[in-house]
Computed example of a mutant assay.
Amino acid sequence: MISLIIPCFNEEESLPLFYPEATSVLRQMNCDYELIFVNDGSRDRTLEILKELSEKDPHVIYLSFSRNFGKEAAMYAGFCNAGGDYVAVMDADLQDPPSLLPEMLEKLESGEYDSVATRRVSRDGEPPIRSFFARKFYRLINKISDADIVDGARDFRLMKRSMVDAIVSMSEYNRFSKGIFGWIGFRTCWLPYKNIERVAGETKWNFWKLFKYAVSGIINFSQVPLTIASWFGTTMTGFSFLVLVAIIVRKLIFDDPVPGWASTICVIIFIGGLQLFCLGIMGQYIAKTYMEVKQRPHYIIAESNKKDFTPIR
């Protein structure tokens, strides 16, 4: 059986287009399947549409959150409630083409791979600035972390049950799925395809949200920012010591007081700025630790048509 996990946030325009295309492909694959739609606190008619689909199609399962918990929580809820031998994550906007599923399943059934993941080889239709920073992010995180994240990687991938179980076992609150997929390992085949624009609706990811997501990914999978902060502190301490020695020598030899309060203030402000910058980096790690220690649930499911769903995790 194949389980498709589809996170949904205000996707009333996309669902009527996604559902028939996805079911058409799955029926042609001659296997049992389930469509797990996770309603992530949508404010439009997304939940109503999902209920209508579930009434006419027993393969449709919906999990509706009590509020918006974010795509990462929606994906995790899908993993926790998926019962298939193979599990895939897809977006409802058809940027992840269902037509790739037969080829992905064929590669998995060959026994050579545990996961078949997709990556975009082009970013047509995407703002140039976003594309530039996205490429830089992938290059940076691969250099400073143990997570293997391919440039252009999508969340759209088909995985064997063993890999899904490994993902579920990583119950951390601050989730970055692209990093988790790479960190747990397993044999992955990358399937390239050209970028496809949304069929309907508007993207929920603006530049600021993507930036915060990137920062979260770096903090979750790398300690390099803390190392940089430590080196900043060490470097500035050594520099300050050398300047202090120079001032003392100048005073003893030339009896010349150091003129210029303005330059002194500039140095103080500069060093103070570095200190605040380093404290900010440490604060990000402390905040992540704080959220983990509280052990709040990743999601809360308010209603579902699945009888044995996991309501809180």
Score class of each variant (00 low, 15 high):
Phe207Gly: 01
Asn220Tyr: 10
Asn195Val: 02
Lys212Arg: 13
Leu226Tyr: 06
Glu202Gly: 03
Ile180Glu: 12
Lys212Ile: 07
Ala214Arg: 14
Arg175Thr: 12
Ala229Asn: 03
Phe181Lys: 03
Thr203His: 11
Val168Gly: 05
Phe207Asp: 07
Phe211Asn: 08
Ala229Thr: 03
Thr188Trp: 10
Phe176Ser: 01
Ile180Tyr: 10
Val215Thr: 08
Ile228Gln: 04
Val199Gln: 04
Ser177Ile: 14
Met170Tyr: 13
Asn174Trp: 09
Gly182Ala: 05
Ala229Ile: 06
Glu197Trp: 06
Ser230Gln: 15
Ile180Thr: 10
Ser230Phe: 13
Leu210Ser: 06
Phe181Leu: 11
Gly182Asn: 06
Phe181Gln: 04
Phe181Val: 02
Ile218Gly: 02
Val215Ala: 14
Ile228Arg: 05
Gly201Cys: 04
Glu197Thr: 09
Tyr173Gln: 08
Ser222Phe: 09
Tyr193Lys: 06
Arg175Trp: 14
Phe186His: 06
Trp208Met: 07
Val199Leu: 04
Glu197Gly: 09
Gly217Ser: 01
Ser169Thr: 08
Tyr173Ile: 07
Lys204Ser: 11
Cys189His: 13
Phe232Ala: 06
Ile184Thr: 08
Lys194Glu: 15
Ile180Lys: 11
Gly201Arg: 11
Asn174Gln: 09
Cys189Val: 02
Phe176Ala: 00
Ile167Tyr: 15
Asn220Lys: 15
Arg175Glu: 10
Ser222Asp: 03
Ile180Trp: 10
Lys209Trp: 14
Arg187Pro: 00
Gly185Gln: 01
Ile184Cys: 06
Gly217Thr: 00
